[in-house]
Amino acid sequence: MDKHFWNLVWYKTYADIAADGQQTYLGYLWWFIEPVLQVATYYVVFSVLRKGAGEHFLQFLIIGIFSWRWFSSCVMTSARSISRNSGMMKSVSIFSLFFPAYSIAVSTIRSATIFVIVLILLISTGFIPGSAYSMLPVLLIVQILLISGVGLLTASVMPFIPDLAKVMELVMRAGLFISGVFFSVDQIPEPLQAYFLMNPMAFMIQAFREVLMKNTIPDLEHLAIISLCSIAAIIVGYQIIKRNNVVYPKVLA
């Protein structure tokens, strides 16, 4: 991985972001329309139809959907990125890490833009930044590590096990319901809470809410464990990709 590799990752990321604005009449507005509609739907379902969703449910929901969408969209595009680019691999010689790397970069830039809107919304509805905001960069970095770990590891094995894409779709669909996007951890029976938080995304969503809505520092030890596991996954994923760089074009024939 030399300088040229990373230059290409950045230029391809820039190119894809630029293309996002060209592909449709509404262009970049689509980055926001989808999550807004999703928030609106769940808000109607959980708050209006089923009374008693709790105070500030809208803000609660927005944070949940933001972090979940960032994770799921990023991981899914990354997971498929190597499998989908066999044509490219057969026309130029390129290190396959390129495909998940720029996929993660593109989704992260989209999500970061949405995050700015989320922050503005929270602040303008009375959630004034407190001292716990200092933890925000840490949370964002851990979330990126987590996404990169899962994204790289799944991308590295997907060419050998195409069925994994189907499995991941199911897991992601279930994940939306078991990661606490619509509910908080204290709504779960006490003995199950520890199991619930073993899902790293459940913990991350809770941590984002603690920092942004309750001005509370999240459990740092738990954050450290997620970071370490993610880094381990990144290293393993990277090694698998490195070893199989000349194997992927054969497997994906």
């Binding site: 391809k12 190119a15 894809d16 630029a18 293309a19 060209q22 592909q23 490219m88 026309s91 130029v92 010689s93």
Partner: peptide, 17 residues
């Protein structure tokens, strides 16, 4: 190296990019 035509073209970008 292979002589690859149109490698990595993105349709929505200008020719220059």
């Amino acid at each position: 190296s292979l002589l690859s035509l149109q490698a990595g073209f993105v349709g929505d970008l200008t020719g220059r990019k």
